[in-house]
Simulated assay, not measured.
Amino acid sequence: MTFETQDLMPSDEGLAQAATLLRAGGLVAMPTETVYGLAGDASNSVAVARIFAAKARPTFNPLIAHVTGLKMAETLAVFDDRARAVAAAFWPGALTLVLPLRPDAGLSPLVTAGLPTVAIRCPAHPVAQALLLAFGGPLAAPSANPSGRVSPTRADHVRQGLAGRIDAVLDSGACAVGIESTILGLDGAPTLLRPGGIPVEALEAMLGPIAIGGDAHKPNAPGQLASHYAPEAGVRLGVTVPMPDEVWVGFGPGCAGAALSLSPVGDLVEAAAALFQTLREADMLAGPGGRIAFAPVPETGLGRAINDRLRRAAAPRPPVQP
């Protein structure tokens, strides 16, 4: 089923319309500081099922519940002193916490994929916060793109992938961070479940050494599938000398001749913000059956999140289901 997708502006009127759609079980793409999220009422199983259907997302892959702050978050999950301290330090912001689910949380089981934990984030984007306040409850919101494809950092990216499948797009320009949130498991020992917009070094400065976790076959948080963030073209990584038929994406000043660059000066913040838009541009340049080659990116700070996304973009694609 397809229908008209409305374009809404982040005015009082647009936010009120978006909240009305959400209360009726509709889906609204909303801006966050990381990427655009596809928001639906996290307590409404029909709305959450529509998220999975619109994205063609596997239902074993849990979603993130977005909240206005710690007070709302504590109605959904069990926070200990450690979790409260981490939330105080990094919220609002690009950090998702995976915590034990409260028995009385009232979330659709589809949000947690039936797991005893829930992923929660308090976004910093003022429009996301305004929509959460207007709606008055938690919103389930994975990235607003077809599952496994390049994440959207602009409203046009959302329309390209989901127009006709969702009710509205709340347009607030380009996302500042440009890469999804870091996901930290705190239902036991601190565990990095997905690198993202908060460098793991910042978390380790507060918590000490953090283990690496996540299972592509049984994900307990979003962004763990082996093949993800994929353009149509094939992707090759760590390339300093590209093949003649490859679109070369550089990083830093030593990439003369690159068609595109994540950051000509080698700035990881700039590279993270540009990653998904650059993937889209490289895909267009490569054309059908083409290939993209990425120059090496340091595995430090935000480089860890950038390389995580690039490795998943380069991974073998799952077979297309008939």
Rank of each mutant, 00 (worst) to 15 (best):
M1K: 12
T2S: 15
F3P: 09
D12H: 13
D12Y: 04
G14K: 03
L15H: 05
A18K: 03
L21S: 05
R23I: 07
M30Q: 12
T34N: 08
Y36E: 10
L38H: 07
G40S: 09
G40T: 02
N44G: 04
S45G: 14
S45N: 13
V48R: 05
A49Y: 01
T59V: 15
F60Y: 14
N61W: 01
P62D: 03
L63I: 08
I64V: 15
H66A: 11
V67N: 04
T68I: 08
T68Q: 10
G69F: 10
K71I: 13
L76S: 02
V78G: 01
F79S: 00
F79K: 00
D81P: 01
R84L: 06
A85H: 07
W91G: 00
A94H: 07
A94F: 04
L95T: 03
T96C: 01
L99Q: 00
R102H: 09
D104A: 14
G106K: 11
T112P: 04
A113L: 08
V118P: 02
V118N: 03
H125T: 02
P126L: 09
V127C: 01
A128M: 10
A130G: 02
A134H: 04
F135P: 00
G137N: 04
P138L: 05
R149A: 08
R154E: 13
R154M: 14
A155N: 00
H157G: 09
V158C: 05
V158G: 00
G161H: 01
L162W: 00
A163F: 04
I166H: 02
D167N: 14
D167T: 10
V169M: 11
L170C: 12
D171C: 07
D171L: 03
D171H: 09
A176H: 10
A176Q: 14
E180N: 06
S181G: 07
T182H: 14
I183H: 02
G185N: 04
D187W: 13
A189E: 15
P190R: 03
P190N: 10
T191P: 00
R194V: 05
P195N: 13
P195W: 09
E201T: 12
A202H: 14
M206P: 05
L207H: 02
P209D: 13
P219C: 08
N220W: 07
Q224I: 03
A226H: 12
H228A: 03
A230G: 12
E232M: 11
R236D: 06
P244W: 08
E246H: 08
V249S: 05
P253G: 14
A256V: 10
A256P: 02
A258G: 04
L262A: 06
P264R: 15
P264E: 15
V265M: 12
V265Q: 15
E270I: 12
G287W: 11
P288V: 07
G289N: 08
F294A: 01
F294C: 05
P296K: 07
V297Y: 02
G303L: 06
I306S: 04
R309Q: 03
L310Y: 04
R312Y: 12
A314P: 07
P319F: 04
